[in-house]
Simulated assay, not measured.
Amino acid sequence: MVYYVAHRLFSAHDRALGARVAGRLADKAGPDSVFLPFCDTDEEDLVAEVKGRRLFELDIERLTTLTGMIALVHGPSLDDGVCMEIGYAAALGVPVTILSTDFQTYDPNGHAPAWHFPDPLIDTMSHRVVRVSSLGPVEDITDRFAAFSSRNHSQLDTAISEGITAMLSAPAPSPALPPATARYGVYVEPSPYFPDPGLVDTVRSGGHTVLAARRLTDERPFAAAITDWEHAASAAALVVDVSGPETPPGAAALIGAAAARCQPVIAYQPHPVYTHASGREPNWRNLMIQYASTRHATDLAAVLDGLAW
């Protein structure tokens, strides 16, 4: 059995939280059954000719052998690497338990049934969302800051316990969607941040049938999310606009799912911003997005070129 702890990696407190979850999980499942990115890929000290790609390969090795995943998802800006990992696992039928201590929920018009995360596709891909949204009980501590800290730690402890229990009791992996035997059309995922009005028309101009995402504009977003998930899985290729402060969460999850199912993905990003880390090559997006994508297109002409198979 292999359990994967998906979490943000880019700050000490996020890594510490991931380690806290992994340690509690190891107490129940055994340390050799738990994979913790950054820690178990030795990211701080790893030396490789192309370090980012090597880190991607090491994570993918574990993602293809999973029994279960527990994903730590903080909103409203979800980590695109974690969302990619959620999509990869879900496409392989691995049950994904999402752990959140957020107190916000989301809906498209202020009065519709709410979903847990900014994109309902993340809810759709999860087997279970464990949400502990309230502070822990008040303790008899005179220092108000220490008391507040204690309530937050108590909230986290409750969430971790409930999340691990939910993951360990999840069913065995099974195919989430049947393999597409006759893939057709191009699934197009616009950016919710900076939608390019020419993207869909450009894909159509190449003679392709377009399966366009609609969950973020549909009156029934949950039903539309399921349709988007099915359309993306059946498409011959995906064109995903990864523009924004980070890859949008649904886009990142769909890129992960496509990588697991060996579907071509064109990541469209007309205004890339590169990130840098010691010993690692520049990345135009989170490295899990960069290396899961088949092609990076910075203009619409390059999108069409990528679809000219």
Rank of each mutant, 00 (worst) to 15 (best):
V188C: 05
E189W: 09
P190A: 01
P190W: 06
S191R: 13
S191C: 11
P192T: 11
P192W: 15
Y193H: 15
F194E: 14
F194M: 13
P195E: 14
D196I: 09
P197L: 09
P197T: 11
G198N: 12
G198A: 07
L199N: 07
L199D: 01
L199M: 06
L199C: 05
L199P: 04
V200F: 05
D201T: 00
T202E: 05
T202K: 10
V203Y: 07
S205E: 08
G206T: 04
G207W: 14
G207M: 03
H208C: 09
T209F: 11
T209E: 12
A212H: 14
R214P: 04
R215N: 05
L216S: 10
T217A: 14
T217F: 11
R220T: 14
R220L: 13
P221F: 08
P221A: 01
F222Q: 06
F222Y: 15
F222S: 06
A223Y: 10
I226D: 06
I226Q: 13
I226T: 09
T227H: 05
D228R: 08
D228E: 10
E230C: 09
H231Q: 14
A232V: 02
A233K: 03
S234G: 12
A236I: 00
A237S: 08
A237L: 08
V239K: 03
V240S: 01
D241K: 03
D241F: 02
D241G: 07
D241V: 07
G244S: 10
G244Y: 15
G244K: 11
P245F: 02
E246C: 01
E246A: 03
E246I: 00
A251K: 04
A251C: 06
A251E: 04
A251N: 09
A251M: 00
A252Q: 10
L254C: 04
L254A: 00
L254S: 01
L254H: 01
I255E: 02
A257W: 01
A257L: 02
A258V: 03
A259D: 06
A259N: 12
A260N: 09
R261P: 07
R261K: 14
C262F: 15
Q263H: 15
Q263S: 13
Q263M: 15
P264G: 07
P264V: 00
I266D: 08
A267T: 08
Q269M: 00
P270A: 09
P270D: 12
P272Q: 05
V273T: 09
V273W: 15
Y274A: 08
Y274L: 11
A277T: 02
S278E: 14
G279K: 11
E281L: 10
N283S: 06
W284A: 02
N286E: 02
N286A: 01
N286Q: 06
L287S: 08
L287D: 04
L287H: 15
M288D: 05
I289W: 12
I289T: 12
Q290D: 09
A292N: 10
A292Q: 06
A292Y: 05
A292E: 05
S293D: 08
T294I: 00
R295M: 12
H296D: 01
H296Q: 07
A297M: 11
A297V: 06
A297F: 12
T298V: 12
D299A: 11
D299R: 15
